[in-house]
Design a protein around this nucleic acid. Structure first.
Lengths: 219, 219
DNA sequence: TTCAGGCTACCACTTTTGTGGTATTTTACT
DNA sequence: AGTAAAATACCACAAAAGTGGTAGCCTGAA
């Protein structure tokens, strides 16, 4: 059984896809989302699907960002981007981030189905048109079999301590207050925050809280 | 025609109520929400209903907080709390905040209907049991006809400038950067932020961003 | 025309955040 | 037993945020 989550801001496409995928015997569409916030909150709860089908245009936060964040926070989850078009630079970024597939929406259903199966087995998969771009990109650096990996840690790339921290920060505690609360040195707390900001790619508290919200870490 | 928005985290109650209210000729249930985030985002877009029916137990953010925030940000909107129980202190706070009604869920539909009509006309309305508490509370201070009011300003209690500011802060700009961007003195920007924090009742940037999110000011 | 609210601006001072290091210990996996 | 990651801790300095004031200007409503 392959567990699948769909994320797409077009409810029609979402429903259609769900109906189609649900008919495939060993596929299970466990959840669908039309906004990234709900999606991230879901992941943060620890319900990690095997495969995520992700549409690329999602309003305030782009598909690229969503994909990057999912890949960073939940490396065990396979992400397949669905898009109407493709852009060289984006694909490069995504492939480096460890995305599992990039398909055009024009892809027919059989191809999508096959792709999901391949991806679930740990392979990379994309539309032929896109493969060219990807191969082109490989003429620069060749590293990285991403792949396999046991389930990893549930809460993702961020450690438990870090998540604890970000929540306390969101509750308006200062480093000093958090240090007291957790019986830690203020230095330690500052170090955690520093790592947190680096991992989430933000510059200050405002960015930290915003991102934490977007990623469903706080509510 | 009275435009109504329902907010309640119990979908069953929500749907039932919607069905009932929709049958009343001059009532229009324009929207329903089962979480506060979506509700605040909706208000922030400027679609202000005349009356909001608000259930009191809503998880992370309490009904009291939601009500207070709505009343503060959108004074023109009439808020009726629906609750299973009632607490002296809460009611006092809410009445002072300018709530338009406080009904128990045990209220029958006719009473609810009448209450909505009264409230839409600018009156205050609550269950008899609660009225006692309210009157009791009046033995302290007697001010405030809240009420009437033209539509006020759309974005609520926060001024345009302040909303602009909070969004730039959420984008990780420092006061200096914002000042440059808007051709203002850094002092001015700091003053705005100061007012902003006071209005939203928060202590620091973390709280500011969190609240702004909760209120749908940023996304 | 007074008055309130919003926008602007300033000051001085404290506290907290943010940067950019290093380093030890514990824990968990191999 | 070895090692990678997490958690802990330290330092010094720069940059911002946060506190608690005051105050002038403009506009629209009473």
């Amino acid at each position: 059984m392959i567990s699948i989550v769909l994320v797409d801001d077009h409810p029609v496409f979402l429903q259609g896809l769900e109906a189609l995928l649900s008919k495939v015997p060993h596929f299970e569409v466990v959840k669908t989302f039309s906004d990234s916030t709900g999606f991230f909150r879901y992941l943060a709860e620890g319900d990690l699907p095997e495969v995520v089908l992700l549409d690329i245009e999602m309003g305030s936060i782009t598909g690229i960002e969503i994909a990057s964040n999912v890949l960073q926070l939940y490396p065990g989850v396979k992400v397949i981007m669905l898009s109407t078009y493709f852009s060289d630079e984006y694909i490069s970024v995504l492939v480096e981030s460890g995305i599992s597939g990039y398909l055009l929406k024009s892809t027919d259903f059989k191809e999508l189905k096959d792709s999901i199966e391949k991806v679930a087995k740990g392979r990379f998969c994309c539309s032929p048109e896109i493969m060219e771009v990807v191969i082109e990109g490989f003429k620069k650096s060749s590293d990285a079999e991403s792949s396999e990996g046991g389930p990893g840690k549930e809460p993702g790339q961020l450690t438990d301590r870090e998540i604890e921290l970000v929540r306390l920060i969101a509750d308006e505690l200062t480093m000093k207050e958090i240090a007291n609360k957790l019986y830690l040195s203020e230095h330690t707390v500052k170090t955690h925050r520093k790592n947190l900001m680096a991992k989430l790619g933000v510059k200050n508290t405002a960015g930290l809280i915003k991102k934490a919200f977007l990623l469903g870490l706080i509510e």
